[in-house]
Design a protein around this nucleic acid. Sequence first.
DNA 1: TTTTATGCTTGATAAATATCAAGTGTATTT
DNA 2: AAATACACTTGATATTTATCAAGCATAAAA
Lengths: 194, 194
Amino acid sequence: MYLPFRKYIDEYSGDTMTDDEFALVKAAFTPKKIRKKQYLLQEGDVCKHLSFIIKGAMRQYTVDEKGNEHIVRFGIENWWMADRESFEFSTPTIYYIDALEDTELLQVSLANLTELKQTFPGMNKLTLALDKRGHIAAQKRITAAISLTAEEKYQNLFKIHPIFFQRFPQAMIASYLGISPETLSRIRKNSILK
Amino acid sequence: MYLPFRKYIDEYSGDTMTDDEFALVKAAFTPKKIRKKQYLLQEGDVCKHLSFIIKGAMRQYTVDEKGNEHIVRFGIENWWMADRESFEFSTPTIYYIDALEDTELLQVSLANLTELKQTFPGMNKLTLALDKRGHIAAQKRITAAISLTAEEKYQNLFKIHPIFFQRFPQAMIASYLGISPETLSRIRKNSILK
DNA sequence: TTTTATGCTTGATAAATATCAAGTGTATTT
DNA sequence: AAATACACTTGATATTTATCAAGCATAAAA
């Protein structure tokens, strides 16, 4: 179970860790399983853990006054899930996170992560790289959101994350794109890409 | 000119730097002035510098096939401007950055920044804090873009960055929000907030 | 196997927003 | 002072997208 995780860390920290270092990592993380539809986080909670997805899929979303869900992020194998703001600053979150499939996680608390970063520099490099990538990805998504039509948003997502379309219900993808499920259905009917 | 910059670094690194450290910082940065409407970056360029705004205002935007501009970011005093992706990976940018007012900058190259981070840990802390904040801000903007109506987007921006409305032409704010200038004008007419 | 839920599609209509075009006031330039 | 550009507004209309409602196929549950 930990093997792909070890590989993942090596890849993103740009280094090969020793067995001793990996022992530190293992000690800092706790495995957790959650079933499909279960919540990992609910509005008002403080996000206590950063979770690495070993297997499964999750989504992070808000619920507006009308009760509509707006999916902000999906997560699959080798992605991290957390509300960064709530996790870093211990403030109540406005998001929900739940499982779209039965999911296995490795979780680390802020305290353990902070300590791990000090004892194992690779972990520091990893979180740096993640922040950088996250920031760049977020910037791209903003650009898409303000400058593309519904159809272009669809095509863009299809290009960037085709896996989403194999893995998630179309209505959720519509929510992620900020368009209605009916509109996405009609766009797909007229689009070459499917 | 460097004084507010020194204060800014102390604030975000969470530490007070020594005069020696500040000498290192000063050596790494180069002052630059650019006039209103001049480009700092154009599509296809590699973004060679991270620029700190001492005085003035800038915008970062894309231009689509129809020639329409979409503003992705504004920058004012004490904000940083750069295309992170192009800067970090030396890839050609898809963005333009230009000055909305005569602007004074302090610029640092990737090489100098990397070295500075090593010789002065405070700079490392600063960039970390910036990434974290940037990431969180980007996440919020995505949430707003996919879940709010045009009017709600306006009210949200008015709450978060009221200064934008005093400083930038309304048409540019509309572009930033991803709505047409006419729509923003009509929204403001019917809104209490102004 | 019947029932129930889920995921998706389709049509009709409504609402939101963009586009086009003109006009006004104000600042800037000549 | 006249001319030009800029920023914004307003109206009319077109387009995009959402909403409402129904239907169909498939999967899951009873």
